[in-house]
Simulated assay, not measured.
Amino acid sequence: MSWLSRLNRPWLHFIVLGFVLFELQRMAFPAPKPVVGPLSEARVETLEQQWLAATGRPPTAAQSQRLIAQELDRDMLFQRALELDLHLYDQVVYQRLLRNMHFLQLAEGKSEQELYDQALEMRLHLGDEVIKRRMIQVMEQLLLAANPPAPVTGEDIAASFAERREELRRAPRYSIEQLYFNRQREGEIPAVIDTIAERGLDAAAARTMSSPFLPGYQFTRQTPDQLARNFGSTFVMNLQQAEPRPRSWVGPIRSTYGLHYVWVEDIEPARDATLAEVRPRLLRDLESRQRADALAGAIDKLRQQYEVRL
């Protein structure tokens, strides 16, 4: 019997025809995608209030749309985690639900497993923001495991170093000692300066003639930002404008606290950073960017499986 005659069977024709019809139906009437969104007006208002609290200004229309899109992505990741039953195998979720049941005073006379099962029946996991954040975190880890970030190469680090050279430039560093005079004692400064010059006193010896200063008197290899944390930005600006030189007195220098007579021990000028100095920072930043890009791409792919309603 030839293979053609073997194909000439009614039951085989029926199976093939049924399969073709099934595929045509699936293509013509695909299963509806799960729906995510839209956000309620209350949730949108909450997002905008959070933005206002963080930035001090209301979001623009474009910023509001980005906030809504990000929140819908969170809802989508949470929904996908629930579809995969990830909440049933996570210890953080387990402990959180037990804690919630104790908080609701429903734990008396029940084992932990009974409490957990009851919490799931009550659907407490759906309205708990801590559980939602945990499930989103787990879902992101799964997406990154399936779509790992591209590794950072030496060429990437070199290119980033060249691109960020000005940003990475090392600030000058000042080693100083200072005498502080509060506003009530500012009139004494000329006499103190004359005494220091006549006796050739160093800063440590002259310190008894100044006022107490809580942050201290000696500051070694401090950047302008570090000095500003102790003296305020006004002091740093006035110090730099005075064009100090190593191994010399400068001032008095005004700060937000009063006046300072400053002994400049040493100044390390600003300079370009070396690649060796900033390589760990560049690597960390590039890995973070690669991770964010990989996660964004994975979320884009996942979004195609849902109907996201803005």
Rank of each mutant, 00 (worst) to 15 (best):
A81H: 04
L106S: 02
Y116S: 03
A53P: 13
S64W: 05
V35K: 12
Q79F: 09
R123N: 05
K110E: 05
E121H: 07
P59R: 03
K33D: 01
L47C: 06
D75Q: 15
L104C: 11
T60C: 09
L124E: 07
L88K: 08
L82E: 11
L97F: 06
M122T: 01
M76V: 12
L97A: 00
N100T: 12
E114T: 08
P38M: 07
A42I: 14
V35S: 00
R123S: 08
Q79S: 13
P58C: 01
S40W: 04
E71T: 04
D117T: 11
K33R: 15
P34W: 11
L72Q: 04
Q95K: 13
D117H: 10
E121T: 09
D90P: 01
N100K: 15
R66T: 11
L84I: 01
T55E: 13
Q118P: 02
D117Y: 08
E45L: 15
D73A: 15
A54F: 09
A42C: 03
Q70D: 15
T55R: 08
P34V: 05
H102S: 13
R57P: 01
E112L: 10
D73H: 14
R123G: 01
A53G: 02
I68T: 02
D73K: 13
L97C: 05
V93K: 07
G37H: 03
L98T: 07
Q118R: 09
V36E: 06
S111L: 13
L106D: 00
E108K: 12
L77A: 01
A119D: 09
Q118A: 01
R80Y: 12
R99A: 09
D117S: 12
Q91E: 07
Q63D: 08
L82M: 15
E114F: 14
H102C: 12
Q113E: 15
A62D: 14
R66Q: 15
Q91W: 11
A61F: 08
P32H: 08
L47F: 09
L84A: 05
R99C: 03
A42K: 06
M122G: 03
P30M: 04
L67A: 02
M101W: 10
A31Q: 14
A61R: 02
E45K: 15
V93C: 04
Q118V: 00
A54Y: 05
V92S: 03
L39P: 07
F29A: 05
Y116M: 06
P30H: 09
V44E: 13
L47A: 03
L104A: 15
L104V: 13
A42L: 13
P32V: 07
E41T: 14
P59I: 01
A69D: 06
A54L: 11
P32M: 01
R57Y: 12
L115S: 03
K33E: 06
E48V: 08
P59C: 06
S64M: 00
E45N: 14
Q65L: 11
D75L: 15
M122D: 00
K110Y: 01
L115Y: 03
V93E: 09
T46Y: 11
Q105H: 12
G37A: 07
M122E: 07
D75S: 14
Q118D: 10
A31P: 10
R96N: 01
A61S: 04
V93Q: 04
L86Y: 00
R80I: 08
